[in-house]
């Protein structure tokens, strides 16, 4: 969806146009659902949270003093916050800060043999890696978003996303390998 189209839709929604809201919903519901589902591993939790995401989105854009740069970023950030609340209720949430170092060992990965993994192992391993690596994997490789879009959501520099994506993949591969041992 282009920036221009988004701005038009936002303006219409603020004027109470339900068709514009429906367009946003139809475009984003699948992606947000996928993201939340992989984070929570629960269909019921994902449905509940996604519904809340769009409700909060609606409430947020109707506040006069709020200006929105990106609908995508707003929706995903809302989803992340609700997921954190969900984890806190479950007593599971532990914040794990990411180290945003420069890429140092990219060449090592190039030397590795590229193998096909059991997809179930991939999904199970995804649950085991740190939260922020999970976000990158899901947004970049499952939802297939651009580095720029991901940077807006995670409030990071676009260049860092490339680095983080690489580290996240590495972590995922390591986790899969450890499960196989």
């Amino acid at each position: 969806m282009t920036n221009r189209r988004e701005k038009k839709l936002l303006k219409s929604i603020q004027q109470g146009d339900e068709k514009s809201f429906a367009v946003i919903y139809d475009f984003y519901v699948g992606k947000i659902y996928k993201f939340v589902f992989f984070k929570t591993s629960s269909k019921e939790a994902a449905e509940e949270i996604v519904q809340d995401v769009f409700l909060k989105f609606w409430q947020f854009i109707n506040q006069d003093d709020k200006s929105i740069v990106s609908i995508s970023a707003l929706l995903y950030r809302t989803a992340r916050n609700l997921i954190i609340d969900h984890y806190r209720q479950q007593g599971k949430y532990i914040e794990t800060p990411l180290e945003e170092e420069l890429l140092q060992d990219e060449t090592d990965l190039e030397k590795e043999v590229d193998v096909e993994y059991d997809i179930k192992e991939v999904i199970k391993s995804l649950e085991l890696i740190p939260e922020n690596y999970q976000d990158i994997i899901i947004l970049k490789f499952i939802n297939q978003m651009t580095n720029r879009e991901i940077a807006e959501i995670l409030d990071k520099e676009e260049g860092n996303i490339r680095v983080l994506a690489h580290r996240a993949l590495k972590e995922l591969k390591k986790t899969i390998a450890n499960k196989d041992v």
């Binding site: 699948g30 590795e112 297939q144 591969k173």
Partner: peptide, 21 residues
């Protein structure tokens, strides 16, 4: 890079229940 793993991740399909949507 880990092309195969990325390809597998790209191909993961998860759909919301249409009735719920």
């Amino acid at each position: 890079m880990s092309k195969q793993l990325i390809k597998q991740l790209n191909n993961i399909k998860v759909e919301a229940d249409p009735q719920w949507k």
